[in-house]
Nucleic acid binder design. Structure first.
Length: 425
DNA sequence: TCTGGGGTCCTAGGACCC
DNA sequence: TCTGGGGTCCTAGGACCC
């Protein structure tokens, strides 16, 4: 049986762990640049704040209902996630960390038959809450997709389920699928839901009744796999070791519009430097990079221009020097004057392990780069912002992300650790 | 004024090879 | 009049996930 553990309203819950005064208060967490709502507490959901809502359109709603607004604090969420995952790992030898707030555990019948799955999962739930302060829900079922469904049920009916739901019989499976709208099934998004609605498929159960050839034709083998999973046969296995990334990206919106080449050059240098560092952390090199710049798509009245360019590296590399040079060369080729740019990004492609690179016969990597960059990475590693930069970056730190409501990095920076007033009141 | 960031997988079609 | 069959590789686009 697969168990899906999902943290409730994860980012909002992380903020609450260190602000118990906000228990039962509406909370939203905003994306980078305080742009969109990316997490909501249950109270904020009830007040009608949608996921992805542009923050500026909801200022009045936030004020009116005293919704607590936070800028995103990824050092905090990342560290809290690590704590949850580490605590979870005590309960199963086979575990897949699926995302920052979700993990699949394999419940082995032999080991766990001493107690029911419900009891075992409930125990995990209270253990995580006690250890980390984060509330979770657990769904258990014979396939990952059904475990997702079970988790939704646990989340939707907290009083009845106490945050744990197990699908362990045909009756439960069919009832669950009749209850679940097809667009809420893991793997069915908006587009497929629209197509399915046209043939009158509304529930997950309806989906399991469609003939295989229709599914194959319209949804490829991915759809067939999904049907099998919903029928209770496991078709998506656990991935215990995260596979090496096939692409690595650093992309950001600018906090204002940029029109000048030199402004964008600085951003591209910084993004490329960050992307190269991620490559080195994974001990990989890339054979090519893709650079893009974008005008804001939601400003229809502005002239739109969204070029991209793929650049081949002279040899597989993770050197910031080489990649920044390449990216800037590409930027000068696609940049056009007369547009207001809002976003840029760099994506490392065709990634190979550092240990298995094929050198070029004609271009030799500079052997000094590797040692130098290793030193740079070490210096920058524990700093809250980079201490060593490249000359093409903003050495004066003119650029700054908009983050007006940033909470302290309670668990990762000793200067921001929580303070408790011990004076007797 | 103001709208996030980072990934994966599959398929179709074109270019090319023998 | 009339032109085969079997492959691979690459890319763009579309779908999905958190």
């Amino acid at each position: 049986m697969y168990a899906l553990v999902d943290c409730n309203n994860f980012y909002a819950s992380c903020e609450r762990v260190f602000r118990p005064d906000l228990m039962n208060q509406p909370i939203v967490v905003l994306s980078n640049n305080d742009g969109c709502v990316i997490a909501r507490s249950n109270e904020a959901k009830t007040l009608g704040v949608p996921m992805g809502a542009p923050a500026y359109q909801y200022r009045d709603v936030f004020d009116k209902h005293h919704i607590q607004v936070f800028s995103s604090n990824y050092p905090l969420y990342g560290d809290m996630s690590r704590r949850v995952m580490k605590s979870l790992s005590h309960f199963a030898s086979d575990m897949e960390i699926y995302s920052i707030d979700e993990a699949f555990l394999l419940f082995n019948n032999l080991i766990h038959r001493q107690q029911s799955f419900v009891h075992f999962a409930s125990h995990i739930r209270s253990y995580i809450k006690k250890n980390t302060g984060i509330p979770i829900c657990i769904g258990v079922a014979p396939s990952k997709t059904l475990a997702k469904t079970a988790n939704k049920i646990a989340k939707k009916f907290p009083e009845k389920t106490n945050g744990v739901y197990v699908i362990d019989s045909e009756i439960k499976r069919i009832n669950a699928l009749k209850w679940q709208p097809v667009q809420d099934v893991w793997g069915i998004g908006r587009r497929f839901a629209e197509q399915l609605a046209q043939i009158n498929v509304k529930s997950a159960y309806d989906f399991t009744c469609i003939p295989d050839n229709w599914i194959k034709k319209h949804m490829s083998i991915v759809g067939l796999r999904l049907k099998k999973e919903l029928l209770g046969m496991s078709a998506i296995k656990l991935e215990e070791v995260p596979p090496a990334k096939k692409m690595i990206a650093t992309t950001r919106s600018f906090e204002k519009y940029y029109t000048e080449l030199h402004e964008i050059e600085e951003r591209v240098s910084t993004f490329t430097s960050s992307c190269a560092e991620k490559l080195r952390r994974q001990q990989s090199c890339c054979n090519a990079i893709l650079l893009f710049i974008q005008t804001p798509p939601y400003r229809k009245e502005l002239p739109q221009y969204n070029p991209s360019i793929t650049l081949q590296c002279p040899y597989p590399t993770s050197s910031s020097f080489v990649l920044i040079n390449l990216a800037l060369k590409g930027l000068r080729r696609i940049y056009k004057k007369g547009f207001s740019y809002k976003k840029a990004g760099i994506i490392a492609l065709d990634i190979v392990p550092h240990s298995a690179i094929q050198l070029s016969m004609f271009d030799q990597p500079n052997i000094k780069h590797q040692a130098l960059l290793k030193t740079v990475d070490t210096i920058n590693k524990n700093a809250s912002k980079p201490l060593v930069k490249f000359a093409s970056q903003d050495l004066k730190v003119q650029w700054k992300m908009k983050q007006e409501k940033h909470s302290p990095r309670y668990t990762t920076d000793i200067r921001e650790i929580i303070q408790i007033d011990t004076a007797l009141s």
